[in-house]
């Protein structure tokens, strides 16, 4: 639930009336943002931590990155059967509201360990790719660039491989960069970033 000031200065509950198409089935109408959020948190975690390690943390992720991803799902620039169905009927204002909500949540604490050899391998690979130029020094991202620090390792690895193998196409520069990496480098970077 989001509180926003109305034109007279009083605060009102910002309720969204929207219809969604979960899992490509018949449309289901949710009455407000809370219902919509319940759908999101079912996979992405009520406390911000997804149970399935292949699903990304979005609590505390950058607003504009989240918004662009939702737009890209709708425009089929990024493909995922679940997400594509969910966003199919969404308006941009609804996407913005959801992105705003999740960006304001606290990033959950992920318990991940990584050995020194993996760290060395990952840091060398990240240096070669000049990754901090966009993701910044702590890999915390900014605006349209996502936070990677503390993200789920399995999700990170799959995402980088999807870019490399042209499964994910909505960031062409990322695809070109990942193409130049060995799978072992990708695995090391995923573990390293998850443990930050």
């Amino acid at each position: 639930m989001m509180n926003v000031p109305n034109p007279t200065g009083r605060r009102v509950v910002f309720a969204l009336m929207l219809c969604i198409v979960p899992f490509a089935s018949a449309p289901v109408c949710a009455e407000d943002l809370e219902a919509k959020l319940a759908l999101c948190t079912g996979c992405h975690g009520a406390d911000g931590l997804p149970i399935d390690p292949s699903i990304p943390i979005i609590a505390g992720q950058e607003f504009y990155y989240l918004y662009v991803q939702l737009k890209d799902y709708k425009a089929a620039r990024r493909e995922n059967p679940t997400m594509s169905g969910i966003v199919a009927q969404m308006e941009r204002s609804q996407m913005k509201a959801l992105a705003q909500h999740f960006s304001e949540q606290k990033w959950p604490d992920v318990q991940a360990a990584v050995d020194d050899a993996t760290v060395n391998m990952a840091q060398q690979a990240a240096t070669a790719g000049q990754c901090v130029q966009c993701h910044l020094g702590g890999y915390e991202g900014n605006s349209r660039v996502p936070r990677l620090a503390g993200q789920q390792a399995a999700y990170l690895e799959r995402t980088m491989l999807d870019f490399k193998n042209k499964v994910r196409l909505n960031s062409p520069a990322k695809g070109s960069l990942m193409k130049a990496y060995a799978d072992e480098d990708v695995a090391a970077m995923a573990k390293f970033l998850s443990a930050l």
């Binding site: 070669a128 349209r144 909505n170 070109s176 193409k179």
Partner: peptide, 21 residues
């Protein structure tokens, strides 16, 4: 080099630069 169409505001390098470690 790797060609890709204009991505409307996203990073558009047309490939990648890689430092040789």
């Amino acid at each position: 080099v790797e060609s890709s169409p204009y991505p409307e505001g996203k990073l558009w390098l047309g490939g990648a630069f890689k430092v040789i470690p």
